Computed example of a mutant assay.
Amino acid sequence: MNRFLSVFILFFMFCSVFVFAEDLSDANSILRSMELSLNPKVYHAVFKMESHYPDRPDPAVMVFESWYKEGVGSFIVVLEPARSKGMRFLQKEGSLWMYNPRAGSKRPVRLSARASFQGSLFSNHDVSDPQYTDDYDAKIMSVERVEHPELGIVDMYILEAVAKRSDVAYGRVVIYVVKDSLIPFKIKYYSRSDFLIKEMILSGVKDIAGALRPTIYRMDSFEQEGAYSVVEVSSMEALKELGDEMFSRSALTR
C-alpha cells in the first residue's frame, strides 16, 4: 500500500508539473501574440509624448522617431522640443545608450532600463523595447468579461508576467488582453517589492501598419497623484527590412 501511495504521489506531481508547463507555454504564446498586436517585427514610427504633473502648469511635450528590428534593437531620434532635438537613443542586447550631439563628447551615456524616459512616467525600457517575452514568464490568472470603451463587453485574458531577472524594469506586470484580437487593454506595473506603481490604458484602436492596433498609451502614476504621461502613435509603417548597421554605437555617435 505504501509503495502504491508513493507511486501515485509521484505520478500526481509529474502531471501537475506537466500541466503547469503547458499553461505557462500557452500564456507566453498569448503574450507573444500581444506584442505583435502592438508593433510589427520591423517598423519605423513617429510618436508624440506628453507628460502632465500637478505641480507644473504646462505639459512637457516630446516628439520622437523610432526604428525597430526584432532581435536586433531600436534606434530613437528626438525631433521636438528644440532644446532636445537631435538626441539619440540606442537599445541593443539589453542595454540602452543615449548620445547628445550638443554635449561636446563623442561618448554615449549608458542608461538604466528602470529610469524615467526623458522625465516621463514611461521607463527607458517601455519606450525602447516593446517585447515582454524576453524578460518575463507569463501565466493565465483568469478569463474575465470586461467593458472595453471602444470594443464593448469582451472576454479578456488576465496574464501575470513575472520578471526572469533582477535587472528587468518591473518585478511583475499584470496584462489585460482581449481574447479574440489579442490586443492589450490595460497593463499594471509592480515594483520588485510588489507595490503597484503605474497603470497603462491602451486605446485609439485603429488599422495602422497593416493591423488593428492601439495607438494611444496613457500611463498613470500610483506614486504621484494626478501625474500621467500619454504616448500617441502619430504614424507607423511596417518594414520588410532594416540593416543591422543602423543599430550600432558607431551609428549612434555619427
Rank of each mutant, 00 (worst) to 15 (best):
K106V: 00
L24C: 12
M141P: 01
R83S: 10
S234H: 13
G171T: 05
K206C: 04
G210E: 07
A82I: 09
M87T: 03
D126C: 08
Y53I: 02
M13W: 13
G86L: 13
I201A: 12
E150A: 00
G210L: 09
L242D: 06
M246I: 09
F4Q: 13
I175G: 02
M87F: 04
Y132A: 06
K92G: 01
V231N: 03
E241F: 11
V61P: 08
I9M: 10
Y99Q: 03
V177I: 14
V143R: 11
K41P: 07
A161Q: 08
M156A: 13
K198R: 13
L10D: 00
F117E: 03
Y53D: 08
D244L: 00
E65M: 13
K85A: 05
Y228V: 05
G210Y: 10
E80R: 15
E65H: 14
M219E: 03
R83E: 11
V77P: 00
D207R: 08
F8K: 12
V63E: 07
M1V: 09
V146M: 13
S128F: 06
S229H: 02
L24S: 15
Q91A: 08
D180S: 15
R192I: 01
L121F: 03
A45R: 09
I183A: 02
G210S: 03
M62Q: 12
A60R: 13
S95F: 11
R56Q: 14
P57R: 00
Y189F: 14
G86E: 09
V46D: 00
Q91E: 14
K164T: 12
K92N: 04
V162T: 14
T215I: 03
S66H: 04
R213P: 04
C15S: 14
V78M: 07
R192T: 06
S181C: 01
D26Y: 10
E147K: 00
S29C: 05
D137Y: 08
L24W: 02
L90R: 07
F89K: 02
F47Y: 14
G71N: 12
A27E: 03
A138M: 02
V177P: 01
E225I: 11
G94P: 06
V233P: 05
S16T: 11
F20R: 15
V143H: 01
D55K: 00
R56Y: 11
F89C: 01
M62K: 09
Y53F: 12
F4P: 00
W97K: 05
I208S: 04
Q224R: 12
D244E: 15
M156P: 01
I153P: 00
A45F: 07
A209M: 11
E65G: 06
M49E: 04
